[in-house]
């Protein structure tokens, strides 16, 4: 298996003494769409900073497509495209110049860079803004600009640090589709996000970092299979009194909303049959919370319990 990323024994202690990364061992396979999750201050951005050589590591080894950042830094860098958390372009520079110059830093000739710039800006719906200064863009456009900039040198590994923060849901979905297409084209993607439904929807594998340690590293499918139960919210048409349901615990949230816990493997058929028998018509059903969110909280709390 070709590895896009191989991190061994990574540690980072900042000059003030804060140990942001204690010991991280992580591999990401070529072609993967990998979610790196964790609470604020867990060490995600520091880990990404080390990968992209914006942060000097204290110890450990990082390889990008087999290139060690200590011995083959330029080769390692040329494989990475980074979309950082904060806007980090010159706000007074024109969008086209930002992208074409970035391509130039990777040795892409200007003529070729202009062609790639046009293709990316059109895909990300920024082509009409190409002569605008970056500061005139909306928040969502700035995010897309950073994605275009990160892709202009055709990287094999795209690292996105909270790329959809502050982006409205419609635009977020457009960006998801764009990233899925890029992944299908063979680009390995590592994503950090606080929108757990985003990670669930996009990523095949997942790592959870907390307090500088990787406390979970598995496939999304395996992780979700750890769920013991899920809670659903049912909208019903008639005024309710709390029904007695065999095999399901439930709570009445208001006259028309019922919360039902469904144990793993229990299924929903029996629930609907019982409600129908009580003449209760279900108008709609939705998950009470993102399922990954519940798991995420459990894993982080368990991890903290072990560390304590």
């Amino acid at each position: 298996m070709t590895l896009a990323l191989e991190i061994t024994g990574l540690q980072k202690t900042y000059s003030g003494g804060v140990q942001a990364v204690k010991d991280i061992n992580l591999t990401v396979a070529k072609g993967d769409f990998y979610a790196l999750l964790g609470p604020n201050g867990a060490g995600k951005s520091t880990t990404i900073g080390v990968m992209s050589s914006l942060v000097n590591k204290t110890a450990g080894q990082v390889k990008i497509f087999g290139y060690d950042i200590d011995t083959d830094l330029e080769a390692a860098k040329s494989h990475i495209g980074l979309v950082p958390q904060e806007f980090n372009f010159n706000p007074f520079e024109k969008i086209e110049n930002i992208i074409v110059n970035q391509a130039g830093y990777y040795g892409v000739p200007r003529k070729e860079a202009l062609v790639r710039c046009e293709a990316l800006l059109k895909q990300l719906e920024l082509w009409d803004k190409r002569h605008e200064a970056a500061r005139n863009l909306s928040g969502g456009m700035k995010r897309r600009l950073m994605i275009a900039r990160a892709l202009v040198h055709n990287p094999q590994l795209l690292i996105l640090d909270e790329p959809t923060a502050g982006v409205d849901i419609e635009l977020r979905r457009t960006m998801w589709e764009f990233l899925q297409r890029k992944n299908e084209q063979g680009i390995t993607i590592i994503l950090t996000t606080h929108y757990l439904e985003e990670a669930e929807m996009l990523c095949r594998n997942i790592g959870i970092i907390d307090k500088g340690l990787l406390i979970e590293n598995t496939s999304m499918k395996t992780l979700l299979s750890k769920l013991n139960s899920e809670s659903y919210l049912l909208d019903v048409n008639s005024q309710l009194i709390k029904p007695e349901l065999d095999g399901y615990s439930c709570r009445l949230l208001d006259d028309h909303t019922l919360e039902v816990d469904v144990a793993k493997g229990r299924g929903l058929n029996s629930l609907f049959a019982q409600l129908a028998a009580m003449n209760i018509q279900v108008q709609g059903i939705r998950n009470k919370e993102n399922r990954l969110e519940a798991l995420f909280m459990d894993i982080v709390e368990q991890g903290r319990g072990k560390q304590a």
């Binding site: 992209s52 050589s53 830094l73 040329s78 980074l82 950082p84 110059n101 830093y105 990777y106 040198h153």
Partner: peptide
């Protein structure tokens, strides 16, 4: 922060 454009590139 745009110095990072250079720092991440080879």
């Amino acid at each position: 922060g745009n110095i990072e454009e250079l720092l991440v590139s080879p």
